[in-house]
Structures are given as C-alpha cells and as structure tokens.
Design a binder for these strands. Sequence first.
DNA 1: GCGTGAAGGATTGTTCAACAATCCGTCAAT
DNA 2: ATTGACGGATTGTTGAACAATCCTTCACGC
Lengths: 242, 242
Amino acid sequence: MTTTDWLEELRGERPDLGRASTAGRVADVLRTRITEGHLRPGTRLSEEDIGAALGVSRNTLREAFRLLGHERLLVHEFNRGVFVRRLTVDDVRDLYQVRRILECGAVRRLAERLASAAAPSPTADLLAPVGAAVEEGESAAAQGAWVAVGTANMNFHQAVADLAQSPRVTEAMDHLLAELRLVFHVMDAPQAFHATYLPENRAILELLEAGDLAAAESAIATYLDAAEAQLVEAYAAAAARG
Amino acid sequence: MTTTDWLEELRGERPDLGRASTAGRVADVLRTRITEGHLRPGTRLSEEDIGAALGVSRNTLREAFRLLGHERLLVHEFNRGVFVRRLTVDDVRDLYQVRRILECGAVRRLAERLASAAAPSPTADLLAPVGAAVEEGESAAAQGAWVAVGTANMNFHQAVADLAQSPRVTEAMDHLLAELRLVFHVMDAPQAFHATYLPENRAILELLEAGDLAAAESAIATYLDAAEAQLVEAYAAAAARG
DNA sequence: GCGTGAAGGATTGTTCAACAATCCGTCAAT
DNA sequence: ATTGACGGATTGTTGAACAATCCTTCACGC
C-alpha cells in the first residue's frame, strides 16, 4: 500500500469529521423521525418545545430547520413556523417525473459511456450495488421484514441513479427518495406496495447485466409509470380521508 | 372571469409575500454579487465584516450563508468560515453530466407526452420561452451586448429544461446554471464562449418547432459535449494560471 | 537552516436574553 | 354570518457573551 493510498483512504473519512456541527446532528435526528413516520406531515415543529427537548438553543435549531427545509422535508412559513411537509398529489406526480428523468437518464448515460468505450456490458463492480439491493429486498421479503423491503427498494433505485456516477445526481436522488417516504407513511399498507415490485427489480437487474441497457431503461420507465399510478390513487384516497 | 380564476391568479403571487425575510434578502444580495462575478471563487466571507456592511446580525447572516450553501454557491468549512465556492474540473464535468440528463430528459419526456396525446408537434405556447431566449441572444449579439448574450444563453437552456414542466427540474436547473456562472467568471473571454453557440440554439429551436424531438435531443447532447470540452480546457488553463 | 512546539490574537460555534413583528383564537358588535 | 378589535402565543431579529478552534508568529533546539 503506497502513501497515496493511505491519503486517499483518509479523504473518505473527512465527512465524518465535519459532522461535529450541532445543527447537523439535530437535523439528523429530526430527519430520521420524519422519514420513519414518527412526525406526520402537517405537524408543526415548535422552536421552543423542540429546542427544550433536544437541549439546543433556538438559533441552532433554526439552522437545523433550514437544512431540512432545503431537503424539502420541512416547509417554512414566514412568521408561522416550520411544518413537516405535506405533499400534494401534484408533488407525487412531479417526483415520479423527476425519477423518470434521473433513473432513465442514468442508464442512458451509462449506455453511451459503454458505447464510446466499445464495452459489451457494464462491469460487475458497477452493478454490484444494484444486485445487492435486489437480494436485500428478496431476503427481507422472505423473512417478512416489510420495512426492510421498503428500504431495499429505495436502495435499488438509488443504486440505479448512481449508475450516472454523478455526485449531484446521487444527492438529488437521495433527497427525492426522502420526500417520497413522506408519501408512504400516509398510505395504508406501504409494505404490500413495495413487495409488488420485487420481481421487476430483478428483471431490471438482469437486463443491465446482459448489457441490454435500452430494454432496462424502458423497463424502468414502465415500472415508474405503474408505481406512480398506484401511488397517486392510494395517496388521493388517503388524503381524502384526512 | 370566474371566482376560481381570481383565486388561482392570487395563488401565483404568494411567493412574493413570503419574501419579507431578512436572511432571504441578504442571500439575494450575496447571490447576485457572486453570480455576477464581483465575489471571486475562493474569497472568504467574514461574518463580522459582511454583517457590519449589510447591517444585519451574525445570526441572520448565518441563515443567509446556509441558504447559499445549499445552492452550492458557498462552501462552509467548520471553524474556518464560508468561502465562495471554487469549482474543480471534476465539478464542471459533473455539471454537464447533469445537464445532459436534465435537458435531454426534458425533451424526451415532452416527446413521450406528445406521443401519448397523438400530437404532431409541441404547441407554440410551450416553445415560446425557448424562442424568446433565442431571439434575445441574437439581438444582444447584434448590439455587442456580450453579457446579455450570456444570460440569454442561460435562459435558453433553462427554457429547454422547463419543457419537462416539472417544478423540481426547473429549480435544479436554476441552481445548476448559477453554479456554472462561477466557472464563466474565471475564464478569459466568456463572451466569445457564449456567442459561439447562438446558431446551435436556433437550430435546436427549429427542430423542436418541427416536432423532431429525437433530433433536438441529440443536437442538445452534442452541443453539451462540445461546450463541456471547450469549457474544461479553458477552465483547466485558467485554474493552472491561478 | 529547518522542523518543532508554545503563546497569542482573531474568527467561528453556540447559547442566552430581550424586544419587535406577526399570527391565531376569542369575543363583542352590527 | 361577517366584521373588527383585543390579547396571548410564537416567530423574527438583534446584541452580547463565552468556549472552541484555527492561523500566525516567534522562540527554541537540532
């Protein structure tokens, strides 16, 4: 192992060091509680109450709110406070519109990169995260761990977007999926929703492994269309009830 | 005009009402100075100095910094302060990677929407902003207003991305172009750079108007490849000098 | 000369307290 | 039922204070 390897490894741990910010840690705590559904959409987050509960000052808490606001998990209404975001049906449609562009675009860019390199199919290490997510989902389903099935499904699509090998696409997809979690917790049975699409994930993986990226892209598109339709219907019904 | 029309119009003015925040206005001021090149990349923004100059407290200024940090115009280094972002060559490549996905994706989504509606070509009002940006650029070039040529070019690509009719894509493209402005100000002659591509913009517009969206998408892709190559070369040279 | 380490100043991180501005619910009046 | 005024509660913003950290300088020893 050379010196530059050492340094390169250390670079990877730099983000952990920067985590010392109090506001960042507060944001982490709130983010988890939101994405895991303990804080329902529409809930108002009182500066005083939460500040007292977490033992941080209002100013620091405000910085945490800003962080989550830009991730679209919170909305900030002037002179009224911050609320856990409540997504409209139009928001859900838009999220899937962006997913179509991002996920299909990632596969398409990968295809063009392979074409210019005269490679027949993606290398195994590129697809490793995708395959891992597929198996993670299947084994979770076998054990009946439905929550884990949901996160595995998210990991799968995150891995697909990561095929673009673009830090900005990765981050955008990360935020996008966090937003989508807001929707899932309003539904009745998000478990069944995710389990439905496990076979499709494997089919997409196999198309990617076979190097038929055009078919994979098209499979993702139809997957997203179906998921959007099902989700919009279920969400509209849930929203109508309250 | 019915009552609901009135109300719908008013909804569009809601964002203007929320603009009363001091931190938001401070962020606006700083954003302009950064994107217009008055604050060079790498510059450190002292909390005390800027707070005194703008007449706001450190806490408020911090909120403004946080806002711009999430737009990637500023970088925040713990215990060291905030700096105007200095983009690496890899950042430039990534920005163009995302542009390819977003702009081409927007056209592609538009094509699929037209196909499902059995429409031969996009409606005129959809392409109006694109056409306006093209003419804006050409008339600015005729008058030698090179700065205006640059903004017109940005408007063109923003308009292309807006074809996706997705609020999130619009916002992402907005932030992306703001980031790119950081690069242009480091170059020697950004004017000539933008002027080169005026004819291409018109060609893309005509392909869109003709309804040949596949050709338009491919034209955008080659445009972006060329622009990226030229920009990366110029930027690397400028970065090497200092 | 050169790398090491300590002292000092400057800047940021965080908290606290205070006041102004704004919103929300209540209640009375028309 | 709508309007208008009042009062409590919450947020917006400020200023000051202290701890933690970084950067510079300078002296020291090899």
